[in-house]
Design a protein around this nucleic acid. Structure first.
Length: 457
RNA sequence: CGGAGUGUAGCUCAGUCCGGUAGAGCACUGCCUUCGGGAGGCAGGGGCCGCAGGUUCAAAUCCUGCCACUCCGACCA
């Protein structure tokens, strides 16, 4: 796993995992409550959060999948600073436009700086300095970096934090059709990414907001607690994207057109008349959702003021055609919980779970067996949180393991000891099996291939 | 930015109206019992009662100012 190698196994007795039995008073959203209770995050200040070891692991899991899918469509990862110079933003005109959401700071020489809320200016400037000819296009660059937007009212934990972790990508093409093709390939890539993350994110026509431009879609996870009101054709919910890795622009065009053929719009873009015309009453859904991704095609909106020109094949100088594409990684941690939990706690999709297995040892007499199993799991690459505490009652261990939501629980000792086998429990279904020690690895291996819907791994 | 509210133990909160030596449950430490769904008992440890000033013999409590955080609304990946 690159670039972060996450530890395969940890022992609960020495892990930093401050879980809470009681619900913190000021958390209203389920995901916020569960993240605090599960010891994933701790609030540092209004809209600022510390990511504790368990939460950090989830963040990195999501990041890894997002990275793989960006790389798959030929995007190149780079890294731009969190702090930017105000000059570029004055050139694009956004220094004034962006308003108070932008955190403005000054350095010791009294130069105007800002903590980047997004990077169109920065990336366009890099492009303008380096790329001069159509021969070097198209180009797709992305980075995964912390952003800051000084929200008037941060709330809902990491869902609406002031500082957040985001993947933002930028496309550069010679002409409009090329730009739209880039937009399409990113669009498809997003469907694939969210599918791998275990969530159903629906693309919707959206407002372009302060980024601007002519074409824009939001990717929204349906959740009653979501902040945006959305309108859609219920058929969309049954739609499965048969996604295969390929680089066929024509095919992408077809796929995007299919994905956007059914009515789906955020409240800004919603037109009741068209909704009624296009969608039969019985299929009209008005609900709420969480925006987890946003794609824009905005042509020369930034290349013009920042003078990013290239020589076209015809010999004439043209402004490069651009798009930008964001996925809110820190927000996704909360959004995934929001769409996958029950009354006992989190239910992580396998692909993003901080650990795959929660191993519980219930009695000292079985210590040797559980140690052996722990080593076996680690050696076979199954990420394991091993509750090796003996001064904690069984009920506490069960309740905590359910709260943490690891996909598989393995229980050694206690009731299972009489059968001389290990108890296997699937968190999601609560389905249990008793499996002999030597068959545990093959068993969970079989389980995880059986229900692996991620055809891209 | 408008409106409302809250700051007391690690967490959830009582005490503030009506001033008089700082409280409970959970968590933590030790011992005993219990032992498959966040156990029970006994004994402990832990507080500049958000900060600063004022009133008073005496302030967590009354007054003034500040700070922080939360909620509702307008705005947003």
């Amino acid at each position: 796993m690159s670039p972060y190698e996450l530890k395969t196994g940890v022992r609960r007795s020495s892990y930093f995992l401050p879980t809470l039995r009681e619900t913190p008073a000021d958390a209203t959203l389920v995901s916020h409550r569960l993240m605090l209770r599960g010891g994933l995050i701790r609030q540092a200040s209004a809209g600022l959060y510390n990511w504790l070891p368990l939460g950090f692991r989830v963040l990195k899991k999501i990041e890894r999948i997002v990275r793989q899918e960006q790389d798959r469509i030929g995007a190149h990862e780079c890294l731009m600073p969190t702090i930017q110079s105000a000059d570029l933003w004055r050139q694009s005109g956004r220094y004034e436009d962006y308003g108070k959401e932008m955190l403005r700071i000054t350095d010791r020489h009294d130069r105007a700086l800002l903590y980047g809320p997004t990077n169109e200016e920065a990336i366009t400037s890099i492009f303008a300095e380096t790329i001069k000819t159509y021969k070097e296009l198209p180009q797709l660059l992305y980075h995964i970096q912390w952003k800051f937007r000084d929200e008037v009212r941060p709330r809902f934990g990491v869902m609406r934090a002031r500082e957040f972790y985001m993947k933002d990508a930028y496309s550069f093409d010679c002409d409009k059709q090329g730009g739209i093709d880039s937009y399409n390939s990113m669009f498809i890539s997003y469907l694939r990414t969210f599918q791998r993350l275990g969530v159903q994110a629906i693309p919707m026509r959206a407002d372009t907001g302060p980024i601007g431009g002519e074409s824009s879609h939001e990717f929204v996870i349906i959740a009653e607690t979501g902040e945006s009101t959305i309108y859609l054709d219920s058929s969309l919910l049954d739609m499965r994207w048969a996604l295969a890795a390929q680089d066929d622009r024509k095919k992408y065009r077809e796929m995007v057109s299919r994905a956007t053929s059914l009515y789906a719009a955020t409240s800004d873009e919603h037109t009741p008349l068209q909704f009624d015309k296009q969608v039969p009453r019985s299929r009209q859904i008005k609900t709420h959702g969480i925006e987890v991704g946003h794609v824009f095609f905005f042509g020369d909106k930034y290349s013009k003021p920042l003078d990013a020109k290239i020589k076209a094949a015809s010999g004439e100088e043209v402004f490069v055609q651009m798009g930008s594409y964001g996925i809110g990684i820190s927000r996704l941690v909360a959004a995934i919980i929001e769409s996958s939990h029950d009354d006992r706690g989190i239910v992580w999709p396998k692909s993003v779970a901080p650990f795959k297995v929660g191993l519980i040892c219930l009695d000292t007499g079985k210590y040797k067996v559980s140690e052996e199993l722990y080593a076996l799991l680690c050696n076979n690459g199954f990420e394991t949180l091993y509750d090796d505490r003996f001064d904690v009652r069984a009920g506490v261990k069960f309740a905590e393991m359910d709260l943490l939501g690891l996909p598989i629980q393995l229980i050694v000792g206690g009731k299972s000891a009489t059968s001389g086998s290990i108890e296997f429990k699937e968190r999601k279904s609560d389905e249990r099996h008793f499996v002999p020690l030597e068959q545990v690895i093959p068993f969970i291996r079989k389980q995880s291939t059986a229900d692996s819907v991620t055809i891209f791994d």
